[in-house]
Design a protein around this nucleic acid. Structure first.
Lengths: 210, 210
DNA sequence: AGTTTGGGTGAACGATTGTTCACTCAAAGT
DNA sequence: ACTTTGAGTGAACAATCGTTCACCCAAACT
C-alpha cells in the first residue's frame, strides 16, 4: 500500500498544523518559530516552506480551521433547538452545555482563538475579529426568528448579539482556564448560565427606542 | 544642578518601562526581547539587569503600574457618583464616559492588559486575572450599596459584576481597536452604552432564587 | 581624604533565528 | 521508457538572542 503524492503532502500539512496547535497551547504565534514547528513535526526547517509562506500564513490557516469547527458547533446549537419550542431558559442551558462540550473537545482551537484574537499578528487578529463579527450577525438573525422580538429594532438585536457573544467568548476563556479543576469548571458553567439568564431577563423586558 | 543617585536610577527605570510600553503596543511580552528594550532606551543590554531580572519581571512591574492607573480611574467613577443620586442610566452614561476617556489617556496601559491577559507569560496572566477579579469584587460591593438590590443574593451580585466587567473589558478592547476612526469610536461607545443598559434592565427585573 | 557602592559599559560566548541555495529521488505525466 | 515535478534534505549565511564577565567612574559613605 503506497501513498499518493497529494496524500503525503496533506499528511505533513496536517502534522504541521497539529504541531503548531500543540505548541500554541502555551505560547503565542508571535513567539512561535518556524524551527520549533519543523522540529516538532520531524522535518527539516526548509521543508516548512513547501506548505506555508510564513508563520503568519500558518496562523491564517489555523484561523480557518478553528472557525470551521466553531461553525460546526453553532450548527449543533441551532439543531438542538429546532423541533419543539422549549422555554428561553432551556435554550440557555442547552447552548451553554454544547459550547462547554465543544471547548473541551476542541481545546487547542479555542485556546488559539482566545490568544491570537488579541496578541496575534495584525492580519490574524483582523481575520478572527471578522469571523466573530460574522457570528454576531448570525446570532442576530437567529434571535430575530424567535418569538417575542417584535419590539426590537434590528440595531438593538445586533447590540444584544454582541453582548451575548462577548459573554460566550469570556465563558470559553474561563472554561479553558478551569480545565483540570473540576470544582472550578462547574462554577464557571453555572456562572455563565446565570449571566446569560440575566441578559435574557433584560432582553425580555427591553423596548427599543422609538 | 546635579542628579542624585536614586533619581538617576528611577529615571532610567521609567525609561525602560516607557520603552517597553511603546514596543508592546504592537507586539506581546512573549515576543519582546531584552535587547529591543535596551536599544530603545539607549542603554547597553546588560544595563537592563540593574533594574529587572527578566522580561517577565518587567511585565509584572507593568501589571502593577497599569492597574494602579486603572484603580485611579475607578476612583473617578465612584467619585462622580457620590453626592446626589442620579438615575441608573445616568450612572451608565457617566461611567462609560470616564472609562472611554481613560482608555484614551492610558492607551498603552490598556493595550498591555488586553494583550497579556491572554497571551502573556503564565505569571503575568495570573496577576492580571487576579487584579480583574479584585475589580469584580469591588464592583459587587459597590452594587450592594445601591438601592434596589435587596432581592439580590451576594452570589448573584458577584455574577452580575462579572458580566459587567466582561462587557467593560470588551468595550475597552473595542475602543483601542477603533482609535483613529472617529465614526467607529462613537459607535463603540454607543454600543457599550446600550449593552450596559440592557444588563441593567435585566438586573432591575431580577429576583435571586430562594 | 579615602573607601565603598552601584549604574552603566563593552567584549565575548554559544544558541537560535529566518532564509538562500543546490541537492536527491520517487511519484506523476508523457 | 523517458522526462518532469515537487516534497523533503542538508549545508551555510548573517542576525539576533540571553547571559557572563571584567571594567569604569562618579555619587555616597566613613
Amino acid at each position: 500500500m503506497t501513498e499518493t503524492r497529494g496524500e503525503r503532502k496533506e499528511r505533513t500539512r496536517r502534522a504541521i498544523l497539529d504541531a503548531a496547535l500543540a505548541l500554541l497551547e502555551e505560547s503565542s504565534l508571535v513567539a512561535l518559530s518556524l524551527r520549533q514547528v519543523s522540529k516538532q513535526v520531524g522535518i527539516v526547517p526548509t521543508g516548512f516552506y513547501r506548505h506555508f509562506d510564513s508563520i503568519e500564513d500558518l496562523g491564517m490557516a489555523l484561523v480557518d480551521e478553528s472557525f470551521e469547527s466553531l461553525r460546526a458547533m453553532l450548527r449543533d446549537v441551532r439543531q438542538g433547538r429546532e423541533g419543539g419550542a422549549p422555554g428561553w431558559m432551556d435554550i440557555v442551558d442547552d447552548s451553554i452545555g454544547i459550547l462547554d462540550e465543544h471547548v473541551h473537545r476542541q481545546r487547542s482551537h479555542f485556546a488559539f482563538i482566545a490568544r491570537e484574537r488579541t496578541a496575534g499578528p495584525p492580519l490574524v487578529r483582523e481575520a478572527i475579529r471578522h469571523e466573530i463579527e460574522l457570528c454576531e450577525r448570525e446570532l442576530a438573525t437567529d434571535l430575530a426568528r424567535l418569538p417575542g422580538t417584535d419590539r426590537w429594532s434590528t440595531e438593538d438585536l445586533r447590540v444584544l448579539s454582541g453582548l451575548i457573544v462577548t459573554a460566550m467568548v469570556a465563558f470559553a476563556e474561563n472554561t479553558l482556564h478551569a480545565v483540570g479543576r473540576p470544582g472550578a469548571e462547574k462554577l464557571v458553567v453555572e456562572n455563565a448560565r446565570t449571566q446569560l439568564r440575566m441578559v435574557l431577563v433584560g432582553a425580555l423586558n427591553w423596548t427599543s427606542r422609538p
